[in-house]
């Protein structure tokens, strides 16, 4: 049996629906149709009345989840694409995120975002939105890169008493596979060393983990050992694991698929620069997408996003210092 990243997301939701009567799913076409990406396939049939088609009303969808969470439920809201969650930002950032702090009462909900670029998807079906959500206090932002994490982290997200933005990468949905669903989980909020190395640390998350590993393999042929760290959750950010890795390697390249201004990769560099300055043998650097909207044409898209080739070039640049 093989399990895809998407299967893992569906299975986690199925388990949560089975184990916890407070859980329900709300989103466009998530009912009988099973969702635009089939992340809720068969769930409406198995759990009648708990997997509901919503109108095309993102603001109201998130607002409804906030209310249901206040009333003790555990809503999961699926956005058809992460990009459309901008329409629900007000409820998420101003309402869900502030509720615990203002009232002392939890707002446990999960906002699932099919994120990231795929060829031909263009400016409005490709975005990575972790930076925006992370900027606001009161929200947990998860960015799983593996089948195992997709499963265990989604279950954690549903159990957490806080609002969680769960960034699922669309590029991984169908082609990333594992043997079986995991039995155990990496501890919550901890980063993971994907590949050990002593020459340079490459910190990244989500689909970029796989590009970074490919770049590390390329550099291994040139005699460099790259340590790849997968953040897994970008907020809270596991600074300890990152600093421990930089302590071993002395060099850092932080990579993110989203835009260069701010964001998770900037946060990593800022923390290492201020808290781990003495550990560094070279200036820490960042690699992100280009500072334009995400292009439609595959030729442009491939040049817009960080790829293994560009990451390898970035690693060499830091190694050369």
């Amino acid at each position: 049996m093989s399990v895809t990243y998407l299967d893992a997301i569906r299975s986690a939701q199925e388990k949560a629906l089975r184990d916890d009567p407070r859980v329900f799913i709300y989103g466009q076409d998530v009912g009988r149709f099973g969702g635009a990406f089939k992340a809720t396939k068969n769930l409406a049939e198995k759990f009648p009345g708990r997997v509901m088609d919503s109108p095309i009303s993102e603001d109201a969808m998130v607002g409804m989840a906030v209310g249901a969470a206040m009333e003790g439920m555990r809503p999961i809201v699926e956005m058809q694409f992460a990009d459309f969650s901008t329409v629900g930002l007000n409820q998420m950032l101003n309402h869900a995120a502030t509720t615990f702090w203002r009232t002392g009462k939890p707002c446990p909900m999960v906002l699932r975002l099919p994120s990231g670029g795929t060829p031909g998807s263009g400016p409005f079906h490709s975005q990575s939105m972790e930076a925006i959500y992370s900027h606001y206090p009161g929200i947990v932002v998860m960015t799983p890169a593996t089948v195992e994490d997709a499963y265990t982290m989604l279950l954690e997200a549903i159990e957490l008493p806080d609002p969680v933005v769960f960034c699922e990468h669309k590029l991984l949905y169908y082609h990333l596979k594992s043997e079986a669903l995991p039995e155990s989980a990496v501890p919550a909020f901890r980063a993971r060393v994907v590949r050990a190395g002593r020459d340079i640390t490459c910190v990244t998350y989500s689909a970029m983990v796989h590009e970074a590993v490919a770049a590390a393999e390329e550099l291994a042929e040139e005699g460099y050992e790259v340590e790849v760290v997968d953040l897994r959750t970008v907020k809270p950010l596991d600074t300890d694991t990152v600093l421990a890795s930089v302590a071993r390697t002395g060099r850092l390249l932080a990579v993110g698929e989203s835009w260069p201004w701010g964001g998770a990769s900037a946060e990593v560099v800022a923390r290492v620069a201020s808290e781990g300055f003495e550990l560094l043998d070279a200036p820490p650097k960042r690699l992100n997408a280009k500072d334009t909207p995400i292009p439609y044409h595959p030729n442009l898209w491939a040049a817009h996003r960080p790829t293994a080739v560009r990451i390898a070039a970035g690693l060499r640049e830091v190694l050369r210092y």
């Binding site: 650097k285 690699l287 500072d291 334009t292 030729n299 442009l300 040049a303 817009h304 560009r310 970035g314």
Partner: peptide, 25 residues
Amino acid sequence: PVPDPFEEDWRATQSAGMAEVMVAS
């Protein structure tokens, strides 16, 4: 002709010099 990334100016603003250029890009 199809789009060529090397001929793109990768500029999202009309004002010049606004794009964030990554150090390692």
